[in-house]
Amino acid sequence: MTSAPAAIVELYERYAATYDGLRGKALFERPWLDRFRALLKPGGSILDIGCGSGEPIARHLIAEGHAITGVDSAPAMIALCEARFPAHRWQVADMRRLALGRRFDGLIAWDSFFHLTPQDQRGMFPVFAEHAVPGAALMFTSGPSHGEAIGTFEGEPLYHGSLDPEEYRSLLAENGFAVVAHAVEDQSCGGHTIWLARRS
């Protein structure tokens, strides 16, 4: 599986328009986004890590009055965001080496963080902490248990990795986050495994 994670950015770059069309605009994530937003001050700044095309999550957060900074490794995805939401900040960046020099009221990594290898995921928690103000909300999706899996997109391999839930809890605690809510394969949210935490 060693080559599969490295291929993800190139895959999303080639199929950005296809992904955008298939992603749909139905916001089944809204209940979790509402829980995330409830931890933020009104209009709080949000860092969207692996923002994709900005649809539908960033659009919803913008409509709710939040200032968004979005980062994604695929330039074609960032181009879509820039065209749709020019008043917000968009940057091509590798989340593993993110160093924006500022902190945010909320951080979200929805359907993006889980494309990293388990080892790279471990390295993300200090990155989260470095970009979070005291009291910041953090929400991300993961797998339900430790392991690696290969899905497909447009007939090509699509890598997913995950840590064990207890390791996620430990990493969050070590980096100053307390778990607020956690759901495993939430069927009301498309079967996603979701973590919502808050910076101490």
Results as ranks from 00 to 15, higher is better:
L11Y: 07
G50M: 10
F104N: 05
A109E: 09
Y15D: 03
L172N: 09
I62K: 10
A67E: 02
A93S: 07
V71G: 03
P75K: 13
F104D: 00
R122P: 01
G101Q: 13
E82F: 00
T2P: 03
P5D: 03
Q121I: 07
D20Y: 10
F128D: 01
M1P: 04
A173S: 13
R14Q: 13
P56C: 09
M77P: 01
L171G: 07
G70M: 10
D34I: 02
W195N: 07
H66W: 04
M77V: 05
F140R: 04
N175F: 01
W195R: 10
A87T: 13
E185P: 00
W195P: 01
L172C: 07
L138A: 07
D120L: 04
G143V: 02
Y168D: 07
I108C: 13
T141E: 08
A79C: 08
G101I: 09
G151R: 11
S188Y: 08
E29N: 07
A129T: 04
A16N: 02
R84M: 01
G50L: 06
A181W: 03
F140H: 06
I68D: 01
F140I: 01
G50A: 11
A181D: 15
A136E: 03
E13Y: 06
G70Y: 09
I62W: 08
S73K: 12
G135I: 03
F28G: 02
